[in-house]
């Protein structure tokens, strides 16, 4: 739907490798540091960037991302500042797709039409909104598609073949396969089962399928990159940023590199994968 997203996945297909999709929280630990992290991500090996919109009540997130959101809110982050971060990033990088990820209430309160217009103008390429299943497509998904933004849906282990078409109908950009029934940053996915699930989704769609939830290491990333079109890593990066903070909770000289070092290792993992067909 947006050119940046489609071009990026087309280029990766030509390279014959999977995408590394990174998640970090806007405003964690503060707006300036999260912008510095964002700017450093493409060079470290991130192919697609997910940027979290902080929310007080993130029902699908584990402790790491919950805490990151609260740190951001305490530092004064809000939707306007999150869009400003995207705008500043976009001024220096016109090729890396950015996906905003979060929950519906801050968008609803900002105003759906205004949000879509401002997000598009800032250089956002797609949205992942955890608490908007296909049953609520009229709320944001359809207006987002009309506004020229990708709406990336989560498919999960509970999304069976009967339900999958409904989930995929208005999905664009890529499909985000949630590798476990659970919250972000929880148990490690079972590679065999995930591979089968990716193959199943690919029978229903030509869109790239990226896999996330529970991916922490380069080895895991490599294993998933063998059959998926992308690997999403979030909690591990958020944890790395958190561990680098000073005792006062403020960023240190090592905060940006704590994230980029891990991204570099993950990118090597993804690039080292031997590609096989999903489910093979």
């Amino acid at each position: 739907m947006t050119e940046r997203m489609d071009r990026r996945f087309a280029a990766l297909r030509r390279e014959g490798r999977a995408a590394l999709v990174t998640f970090t929280m806007a405003g964690d630990p503060d707006a300036a540091t999260s912008l510095a992290i964002l700017k450093a991500l493409p060079k470290a090996g991130a192919d697609v960037i997910e940027l979290g919109m902080p929310f007080t009540d993130p029902m699908a997130d584990g402790p790491a991302i919950q805490a990151a959101g609260l740190r951001a809110l305490q530092a004064g982050q809000d939707m306007k500042k999150t869009l400003a971060i995207v705008r500043e990033f976009r001024a220096g990088d016109d090729t890396t797709p950015i996906v905003l990820m979060g929950y519906f209430n801050p968008i609803y309160v900002y105003g759906v039409d205004k949000f879509l217009a401002d997000a598009k103008a800032a250089g956002v390429d797609g949205l992942i909104v955890v608490d908007l299943p296909p049953e609520e497509d009229g709320e944001l998904c359809l207006p987002a598609l009309r506004a020229g933004l990708n709406f990336i849906r989560l498919a999960t282990p509970t999304t069976d073949d009967k339900r999958l078409p409904a989930v995929l109908t208005n999905t664009s950009g890529f499909v985000y396969y949630v590798s476990i029934a659970g919250i972000t940053g929880a148990a490690a996915p079972d590679p065999g089962r995930v591979s089968g699930a990716v193959a199943r989704i690919k029978r229903h769609t030509g869109l790239p399928v990226c896999v996330g939830f529970g991916v922490r290491s380069a080895a895991q990333a490599r294993a998933i990159a063998e059959y998926a079109d992308g690997v999403v890593v979030g909690s591990a990066l958020v944890d790395a940023a958190h561990r680098s903070l000073g005792p006062d909770g403020k960023p240190t000289a090592g905060t940006v590199t704590a994230v980029t070092d891990l991204v570099r290792a993950l990118a090597e993992g993804v690039r080292g994968a031997r590609r096989v067909a999903a489910g093979a």
Partner: peptide
């Protein structure tokens, strides 16, 4: 307004 995991 719930996550896809819960929808089914």
């Amino acid at each position: 307004f719930v996550a896809e995991t819960l929808m089914p």
